[in-house]
Amino acid sequence: MASTTTAAQVPGTSTTVGGRSQRNVKTLPLVAPSVVILFLWMIVPLAMTLWFSFQYYNLLDPSVGGFAGFENYTFLLTDPSLWTAMMNTIFLVFWVLVITVGLGTLLAVLFDQDFYGRSIARLLAIAPFFVMPTVSALVWKNMLMHPVNGLFAFFSRSLGLPAIDFFGSFPLTSVIIIVAWQWLPFALLILLTAIQSLDSEQKEAARMDGAGPFSMFFFIILPHLGRAISVVIMIETIFLLSVFAEIYVTTSGGPGLASTNLAFLIYLRALREYDVGGASAAGVIAVILANIVAIFLVRSIAKNIAD
């Protein structure tokens, strides 16, 4: 390891710092492009969103304009559709998290076991994550959940039950099922990786001490997974707050506002009703929601870089 060199050996290109050869590389020009464009990407649109949220700004009606103060916010906060959208967002995020983390943990334990053809079964199980959202939403909507020709309708009719009109009667639940199906492989993949990093000696020792499968799961595996589960929850939350395509191609937020989340509400306000000011105020709220989660996520990643 101690391959040291002196500045004299390679004049002008190397200096010795702390026993290691170091170039006199100016790192600023190397890092600057990434930093500058990311900074612009972050700050410019955010500043504009904030600015618009305090303006009267309608794309169709150029005559309205000027400083609105907090009017967009008061209008938004007193508008029941915001609260419906907020509740739908939280409902969606919560249930997708429960399903993906719960099932994902069980599946991760299952796929950690040794069985025939495990690696192929695992490939099949992670596949949904690589399917583009518009495809998975349409496959579920048409071929599985369709009240007349869908496969689920056929199954319930075969059992003598009435077919369920998924998107008519349970629009938000149907969206949750689709989104959970897409994110289950993500939870599975990450939790499986975490389980496999568990020391096999530790597992062996627990087994020698007479730990059965259940105490093994609750006292060895689950505590070990704690961190991975929290990472899964945080990353999923950030993506799930912005679920859009699945709603766009299945319910368009309806019926009424039954499956409109915050992301879809902003889209409706801005690009369907052309109310830039109101949509921007909703955007600011979405940013604040995401940042509450992000703070925890960044903190836990920071802890990991330290070691």
Binding site: L46, F52, Y267, S280
Partner: peptide, 29 residues
Amino acid sequence: FPGKRTKDLLLWMLSTKMMPAVGVLIPIY
């Protein structure tokens, strides 16, 4: 060539990823 600020810089870069796309849809559009 890590410096004192490298870690902070990396974390800051990640934090830009946490911005929900809907929050900046309107200005980008």
